[in-house]
Amino acid sequence: MCRTDDLRTAVLDRNDRAADALRAELAARGTVLVNLLSSPGSGKTALLEAELALAGRRGVPVAALTADLATENDANRLARSGAPVRQVLTDGLCHLETGMLRGHLDGWLPPDTRLLFVENVGNLVCPASYDLGETLRVVLASVTEGEDKPLKYPAAFGLAHLVVVTKDDIAEAVGFDRETFLANVRQVNPGVEVISTSARRGDGVGLLLDRALAAGRGGPVHRPVMATALTGHDHGHRHGRGRSLAHEEHHPHDHGQAHGHDHAHPAAEAPGAADPDGAPASAATR
């Protein structure tokens, strides 16, 4: 009486398809999306405020969309930079999905925008699973959060193209063990670049802007191990996000979900973008 179908469908396929479509659309108009993930209170907004202001001084057209469960406080802070800013209230939802993001971009995002920063909901768990069409996924951690954060939230740190340490001006006061933090990042994401910043002191401000612009120009983007699915016989290739519906016999582990967003912008596919051995983690400490 019962019949069983092998669907082999990526659960988050709908989001992944929407993310791919958005990425392609943004690429066609010359916009790069940067997805910023961190815990609440890690300093995303302060750093972003500084980066937006710097972009304004450099004449780089940028925009920012910030998501929170409630209040427009972040948008008000970011708007001081003069950049176009939009607040998204998720009404309690713990993460952004592409469909939600998309609805907010239509009719708002200025056509000449080169960089669109999306400040995700402060949360290191759920946002990690949702590709938003970004070219660069950036995970931030403040020096007060503990060196083991990358191990506690491996999906967030493991899928990052860039890791940013924030509030570095108080690192010494809070006894931040940088080497341990870097080792933990390396464990879950070998080769990812780690930069240190202090929005208050101005240290490292501009690095995020530089990395995003470089990715937009087609420069190499880090390929996280966790975002790289291997078959039983190859030596590593970056494949598209899980394309679901019975087409994955040879890629049984590629199922969409958050990984794979590294192929993002076509520009990120430039030859040499993939470094199978992973470049050593560097720390631009000041």
Partner: peptide
């Protein structure tokens, strides 16, 4: 948490053979 550098030679993993699945099998 995943260990993604080689326990033998210490090199970075080329990628994952499995572990990121989130799919409707049947």
């Amino acid at each position: 948490p995943p260990r993604l550098s080689c326990p033998g030679c210490g090199g970075a993993a080329a990628g994952l053979l499995s572990g990121r699945e989130l799919e409707i099998a049947a």
